[in-house]
């Protein structure tokens, strides 16, 4: 009797969530599938998917892959030492994480990216500084490098957090044991810390790679609308109400997202690496 009531209570609690997620997460994805695989008359066709063979779109996809890979690598190279340092300093993590991750978000993401325009402009802050110390001004804005900088800037916290969360869970005794058994600092890192932190690294990589691959705002603002990424192409298709091509291209994009999700699920069973607080 009691158990039966318990189960009923449980179902009652879960129902709003299940209905909501079915209606607004699962079913909408089938709409993309439907539009991507049909034409305006509702007939089954591959022409939406075939949009990707269009040279302009293909170039955009390759450029997106290239830039998002480079920024993911840079994020990893910056974030891993930072996470290690934070771990070693054993400072109050919560306040620091709020400072690095939550607080900047209260300044709108578009404005923060726009601020880089001011910093990178031909007559901007950085170039004024360069000419001030006698160096030639650099052409920074509206280049792929500026887009990479924007990606690294916006997504770095998503790399730092999962790595940090995994690193602080590593038992100090495991490390001490390795040292006692004669490993030096570098060996301990290579054989103990690095393998144990891998789930955080993997989840960090997917959390940076996917948004970088699919952004259209950063390339819009820092690329001067001259550099098209795959996100820009899809956004433009929907601007001109070309839903079938846009959905077809989104499906192609989702293949890459699914690959990274699959890799992540292999390493991060409970998805705890993504936990923030």
């Amino acid at each position: 009797m009691n158990n039966k009531r318990q189960t009923l209570w449980n179902h009652l609690l879960a129902t709003p969530y299940v209905l909501w997620m079915a209606a607004f997460i699962v079913i909408p994805l089938f709409f993309i599938l439907y539009y991507g695989l049909t034409d305006a008359d509702g007939r089954l066709t591959l022409s939406g998917l075939a949009q990707i063979t269009n040279p302009v779109n293909q170039k955009a996809l390759w450029l997106s892959l290239e830039l998002s890979l480079v920024s993911t690598v840079i994020c990893l190279l910056l974030a891993y030492p930072l996470a290690m340092i934070l771990r070693s300093l054993q400072m109050n993590s919560t306040s620091f994480i709020v400072l690095i991750f939550i607080l900047p978000m209260w300044m709108n993401f578009l404005l923060r990216t726009l601020a880089w325009q001011t910093l990178l402009d031909k007559t901007g802050v950085l170039n004024t500084f360069l000419t001030g110390v006698g160096l030639p001004p650099q052409n920074l804005i509206n280049t792929p490098a500026a887009i990479i900088l924007g990606m690294v800037y916006n997504f770095l916290p998503f790399m730092v957090l999962p790595i940090y969360n995994v690193l602080i869970k590593i038992d100090r005794n495991v490390e001490n044991a390795a040292r006692d058994l004669g490993a030096n600092g570098f060996q301990t890192f290579l054989k103990i810390i690095l393998p144990l932190s891998l789930p955080g690294v993997i989840s960090g990589i997917t959390m940076v790679f996917v948004p970088a691959l699919t952004t259209f705002v950063i390339s819009d603002i820092l690329g001067g609308a001259k550099i098209l990424l795959i996100g820009n192409v899809i956004e433009q298709e929907f601007q001109i109400l070309n839903w079938h091509s846009g959905s077809g291209l989104s499906l192609v994009l989702m293949v890459f997202i699914l690959i990274s999700m699959f890799v992540m699920s292999k390493y991060d069973k409970e998805a705890e690496g993504t936990a923030i607080w």
Partner: peptide
């Protein structure tokens, strides 16, 4: 798993799918 979809999926795909719905 369902709750992970919007976190791991691209915002642009989530946005478009909701718009189509």
């Amino acid at each position: 798993g369902v709750s992970n979809i919007p976190m791991l999926n691209a915002d642009i795909v989530t946005g478009i799918s909701l718009m189509l719905l």
